[in-house]
Design a protein around this nucleic acid. Structure first.
Length: 577
RNA sequence: GGUCCGGUAGUGUAGCGGUUAGCAUAACUGCCUGUCACGCAGUAGGUCGCGGGUUCAAAUCCCGUCCGGACCGCCA
């Protein structure tokens, strides 16, 4: 290799030596007689000076932004008074400049990076990825992979790869389908997660498994959701929930220590699903700030304000002083998240004005005391079914966070566990019970007798979510290892024995051949890296992401295919209307 | 499927009923020996996303549509 070092490795020690560097022209400052170049590689940038009588001058004169060049020259300190700190204390006096490749004028200025429309950055992703910020994020991700691998390997986890072409299952997310040429009319599905395979590995006796698994879900996208994404998938045998959480906390702390030099306080705080929903209106609450709901259901029950009088739940959130415009915006948020409206009052002295204040006269003292609202501050109310009310107010809580930058005063990272999810959830659309996590999640043993009773909605699952800064970065459970409990579970969700056999027969068979108690978790690895990098979107930490319509704007995927290809796999495309 | 925001030279934006569609930056040409967002002078660059409507007149107002983004539904 002709290159003597990365640019970022240069420093005082190299002063006086001749170096050969290779990289891209970041910037050219042509003073006529004298040309300055900024040369960039993945490690940094350095200034190159080309003097008019130098053999390098002719080549340097032709350079433009993003040309690929090799520069040979003397590395030296800059004249005093022109040292700008760091590598800008030094420069390379070029003796030779070789153009390794010319470049067309870039479609956007790389240094404008973040300000450029994202679709243009995505179309020219290879240029966007030249930006130091993007390279920093990819390198951070790479470090996180290395840290995870080192930790889990040391803890005795075995890395196993599971198939990408597998069986479609009817439940959960929509599958991506792959036609089978050798079995016309039949399809593989891409895995939504390696769930059954990792459980089978426990049945196989591997005891501890992990994998950075690519997963695929054909659902609508969000800033933190891609159709293909990466899970750090783990499973352990002969463990209790407590064992899983303990390893996970040490793993997470290790990753933050190695990658970010940040200590996460252990153990992580825990709250139940019910507490999380009841206080913060989310099963993944952002706990960098507290701002919790206050229950005031009793103050309004049977009172004069009809909208609150008969409500199952009335919650209130104490906000800072808000303008009418801000309240309108927050009401819009509440409505989009299922509320009928967002009632409010403003504190003036020891009473309330505006909004629904004429209905709260009698409750003013109690409201003041319970909410602790500051003078001038606003109380925001949500009422209705418990779940609807808290969910809507939870969205308002996050809108307030964004409005007043509430997370800024808290810790940079806040990790917590959310536990005791319901085993079953009533699905209003289908009028049936369904699982909340997945159908292999083990219930709390003492709740098992509730299966099949009218209290089965109270069954708690041994399921847990890892929440970081308001993002669900991990979720898992202890699994059912007793075929009899598995049968009860299928029955509860209206799965006939025949259906269960057809969909999961191989797995149910396996359960009967000596299944150890086991449990595990999967991290949404892209999301975790996003939070660690301080990025606002998962796309910022994925090299080649898709946009929010699932389109790869660079590769132009998806795309139509040749009729001959379709014929080979036995697929006929119907006209769209 | 729904709600909201946006679309004007390569890029980022101003203009919001009558403008020669402006500014910055990038690009190109010339000048310039210590710049570092180099500077100076000049040149070129626009289907104002697309279609329809209102109007004497539309980048501007209305409707539709396409594209981009955020969110709801969905995502075990």
């Amino acid at each position: 290799m002709k290159r003597t070092s990365y640019i970022g490795e240069l420093g005082q020690a190299q002063v006086g030596t001749t170096v050969t560097l290779q990289g891209w022209v970041n910037r050219r400052r042509d003073l006529g007689g004298l040309i300055f170049l900024e040369l960039r590689d993945r490690s940094g940038t350095v200034q190159v000076q080309v003097e008019p009588d130098s053999a390098a001058f002719a080549a340097a004169d032709t350079l433009r932004a993003e040309y690929v060049v090799e520069v040979e020259g003397r590395f030296q300190a800059r004249p005093e008074g022109q040292r700008k700190g760091g590598l800008a204390d030094f420069e390379v006096i070029a003796s030779r400049v070789t153009v390794l490749n010319a470049a067309r004028t870039p479609p956007f200025e790389l240094e404008k990076g973040e300000q450029v429309a994202e679709d243009i950055r995505l179309k020219y992703r290879y240029l966007d990825l030249r930006r130091p910020e993007m390279q920093r994020q990819l390198m951070l991700r790479s470090k996180a992979v290395a840290a995870v691998t080192a930790f889990l390997d040391a803890e005795g986890f075995v890395q196993v790869e599971t198939p990408m072409l597998t069986k479609s299952t009817p439940e959960g997310a929509r599958d991506f389908l792959v036609p089978s040429r050798l079995n016309p009319g039949e399809f593989y599905a891409l895995p939504q997660s390696p769930q059954l395979f990792k459980q089978l590995l426990m049945i196989s006796g591997l005891d501890r498994y992990y994998q950075l698994a690519r997963c695929f879900r054909d659902e609508d996208l969000r800033a933190d959701r891609q159709p293909d994404f990466t899970q750090l998938d783990m499973e352990m045998s002969f463990v209790t929930q407590e064992d899983v959480l303990e390893v996970q906390e040490r793993l997470m702390a290790h990753v933050f220590r190695v990658v970010l030099d940040t200590e996460l306080p252990l153990p992580f705080p825990r709250l139940s699903y019910h507490e999380a929903m009841d206080r913060y209106g989310s099963d993944k609450p952002d706990l960098r700030f507290d701002l919790r709901f206050v229950d005031v259901t009793d103050l309004f029950r049977g009172g004069e304000f009809a909208a609150f009088a008969g409500a199952e739940t009335v919650k209130v959130l104490a906000a800072p002083e808000l303008t009418r415009k801000q309240i309108d915006e927050l009401e819009r948020v509440a409505k989009q998240n299922g509320a009928k409206g967002l009632a409010w009052v403003r504190r003036e002295g020891d009473s309330f004005t505006g909004g629904i204040s004429k209905f709260v006269g009698g409750q003013a003292a109690a409201l003041l005391e319970r909410s602790g609202v500051q003078p001038g501050g606003t109380l925001l109310f949500a009422a209705g079914d418990w779940k609807k009310a808290v969910t809507a107010l939870g969205a308002v809580r996050l809108a307030l966070r964004d409005l007043f930058n509430l997370a800024a005063d808290g810790p940079q990272f806040h990790a917590a566990w959310v536990l005791d999810f319901p085993q079953l959830e009533w699905d209003e659309d289908s009028g049936t019970w369904t699982y909340m996590h997945h159908p292999f999640t083990a219930p709390h043993p003492e709740d098992i007798p509730l299966f099949g009773t009218d209290r089965q909605g109270e069954i708690r699952a041994q399921a847990y979510d890892l929440v970081l800064n308001g993002y669900e970065v991990g979720g898992g459970s202890i699994r059912i290892h007793d075929p009899a409990v598995q049968a009860q579970m299928f029955q509860a969700i209206g799965f006939s024995e025949a259906e269960a056999q057809e969909k999961f027969g191989f797995f149910l068979d396996a359960l009967e051949y000596g299944t150890p108690p086991h449990g595990g978790i999967a991290w949404g690895f892209d999301r975790l890296v996003m939070v660690m990098a301080g990025a606002g979107s998962i796309r910022e930490v994925i090299a080649f992401p898709k946009n929010n319509r699932g389109v790869d704007l660079m590769a132009q995927a998806p795309s139509p295919v040749e009729d001959a290809q379709l014929a080979e796999v036995g697929v006929v495309v119907r006209d769209q209307e």
